[in-house]
């Protein structure tokens, strides 16, 4: 569960600030944040993922304040690729599992589950840098779920996805929600976003209505 109260985060570098007076998302629920380009979606998701440092107000993740939350609880799917392009999906997954102190077998289990909804097994041994945008998005999604987070934050979920991939994405999205994962997804595409979330809210000039 995520509870946000009077959140304010300034970004002097961009001359921008994020404000959210109240937002509460229960476990197993997906919330959508929509808004046009430059409205502050990415900065908001980064703030929730704990990437932007100190903030005022309160962000509670499973009853623990964000700054005290163990990072393993959060899964983040960023707009930009932060995975090592020179590694394959399998190698990257093993690397991440090692950092999370999880066993390598977890990769096979997660891959079986994920591939039943969105087939990524065909490119597990291909270097990440050689993947297409759609394939990369699926890989980013997969790796953000490797450590079984309780909260998943997604920035632009439909980035690079075609119609078929969007359906696969939605299937995974629904499945993780059934597993009681709390999801916050931010996108400029309101029509697509509305199909996969239960609650939605708008962001405009950094302010969440």
């Amino acid at each position: 569960m995520i509870k946000i109260k009077d959140l304010k985060k300034d970004f002097p570098k961009y001359g921008f600030s994020i404000e959210c007076r109240h937002l509460s998302v229960e476990s197993g629920t997906a919330a959508g944040i929509y808004g046009p380009a430059g409205s502050g979606k990415t900065l908001f998701t980064k703030t929730l993922a704990g990437l932007t440092g100190s903030y005022s107000g309160s962000v509670e993740i499973a009853s623990t304040e964000l700054k005290n939350t163990y990072r393993r609880k959060i899964g983040y799917l960023p707009f930009r690729n932060v995975l090592y392009g020179n590694l394959t999906l399998k190698e990257m997954s093993h690397y991440l599992l090692g950092q999370y102190k999880l066993k390598r077998e977890e990769f096979d289990l997660k891959l079986d589950w994920f591939s039943s909804l969105w087939n990524i097994s065909q490119f597990t041994n291909r270097r990440i840098a050689s993947l297409t945008d759609g394939q990369l998005q699926s890989v980013k999604f997969f790796t953000s779920l490797l450590h079984s987070p309780t909260v998943l934050i997604i920035d632009e979920p439909f980035n690079g996805l075609g119609t078929e991939s969007t359906d696969s994405f939605s299937a995974v999205f629904d499945d993780i929600r059934k597993k009681q994962v709390t999801v916050i997804a931010a996108s400029a595409n309101f029509d697509l976003l509305e199909k996969i979330v239960q609650i939605s809210t708008q962001i405009s000039n950094g302010k969440i209505e």
């Binding site: 990437l51 163990y70 959060i74 960023p78 932060v82 090592y84 999370y100």
Partner: peptide, 12 residues
């Protein structure tokens, strides 16, 4: 460029 990844991992 992968600095963000380190901030997502425990003690990254």
């Amino acid at each position: 460029q992968n600095g963000m990844l380190s901030k997502l991992l425990p003690y990254g």
